Amino acid sequence: MRFNRILLSTTLVVVALVIQVSVLARLQLPGAVPDLVLLTVLALALVYGHVGGALVGFGAGLLSDLAPPADHAAGRYALVLCVVGYLAGLAKPESGRLRSAAGPLLVVVSAALGSTLLYAGVGALVGDTAARHVGLVGLLFTAALYDLILAPFTVPLIIALARRAENDPLGEGSPANKAADVSSGWLASGTGLSIGNQRGGLRAKAAKARVARAGRIKGVKRL
């Protein structure tokens, strides 16, 4: 991943994690907790694709595993968000532009349900049965509902920030760098071959003019 992607992704994930732990987790809503970190991973995956989504998801999940008050094994949520980020990145449009809001909302609902099921499944493998006591059906419903309500206020903003960072004038392939390459190439060649080519072109034009002038004079003499 490029430096601007790493910097933006890290900043957004840290901010989302702080808001989720310090604000959303303390709302004491019934069922699940609104997952702002998950929405951040989804939004970035829709811009960066499946590889970038998997990397961002793994990093975001690992931070969530280590952030207090984590009560599960480290790496559990990293695995979940890595898989979710990869799958969400597959939904990235080829043109890079989303035609409607239905696609991202469908991705949000699918990710909310899939991450909850995968998290509970991994927990069952390691002996964590908390999902059974809370109620898996209630967790699925509330997770999808809360993330769907929060998505319109977060996903479009994160996508816009990621796209703006992709058009960084300091990045590779940007118009500014292309102009710099053109100007440097012009400076490099303008003192040598370009001047020689220009002189050769002027000489050829002068020779053609002399030939044309001589032809006109001969024509007058024939008359």
Results as ranks from 00 to 15, higher is better:
Lys92Thr: 06
Phe58Gln: 01
Gly185Ser: 11
Thr191Met: 12
Arg5Thr: 12
Leu7Asn: 04
Leu125Val: 05
Leu90Tyr: 08
Leu193Asp: 14
Leu150Trp: 04
Ser9Leu: 07
Ser100Gly: 09
Gly171Arg: 05
Gly219Thr: 09
Lys218Met: 11
Asp168Leu: 14
Val80His: 05
Phe3Val: 10
Leu187Gly: 09
Val14Met: 10
Ala151Val: 06
Ala130Glu: 09
Gly75Ile: 00
Ala32Gln: 06
Ser194Lys: 10
Leu118Gln: 07
Ala180Gln: 09
Cys82Thr: 11
Asn167Thr: 14
Val134Gln: 13
Leu117Glu: 02
Asp181Leu: 15
Gly85Lys: 03
Leu105Pro: 03
Ser184Cys: 09
Leu29Tyr: 06
Phe141Lys: 06
Gly59Ser: 10
Gly190Ala: 14
Gly123Lys: 07
Thr11Tyr: 15
Val108Asn: 03
Ala16Phe: 10
Leu81Met: 06
Ala78Val: 00
Ile19Gln: 10
Val56Tyr: 04
Pro30Ile: 07
Gly121His: 13
Ala144Val: 04
Leu12His: 03
Gly57Glu: 02
Ala144Pro: 08
Thr10Arg: 00
Leu24Ile: 06
Ala124Ile: 00
Asp168Cys: 11
Val84Lys: 00
Arg26Glu: 13
Val56Pro: 04
Arg76Cys: 00
Ser22Pro: 03
Arg26Ile: 04
Ala160Val: 10
Ala130Phe: 10
Ala91Val: 08
Trp186Asn: 12
Val211Arg: 13
Asp181Pro: 07
Lys218Pro: 02
Val126Trp: 05
Arg199Met: 11
Ala112Asp: 02
Asp147Tyr: 03
Tyr119Pro: 00
Leu38Met: 10
Arg216Glu: 14
Val51Met: 08
Arg99Trp: 15
Lys218Gln: 14
Phe58Lys: 02
Ala70Pro: 06
Ala165Cys: 12
Val84Gly: 00
Arg213Asp: 14
Arg164Lys: 15
Leu202Glu: 13
Val37His: 05
Leu7Ile: 08
Ala160Gly: 10
Gly59Cys: 10
Val122Lys: 07
Val126Leu: 05
Gly201Asp: 15
Arg210Gln: 14
Leu87Arg: 02
Cys82Leu: 15
Arg132Met: 13
Ala151Cys: 10
Lys92Leu: 07
Leu136Asp: 04
Ala73Pro: 11
Asp71Trp: 11
Asp128Phe: 05
Leu170Lys: 09
Leu55Phe: 14
Pro30Asp: 09
Ala207Asn: 06
Pro93Phe: 01
Gly85Ala: 01
Gln20Thr: 05
Ser115Gln: 08
Arg213Pro: 05
Ala112Thr: 02
His133Asp: 15
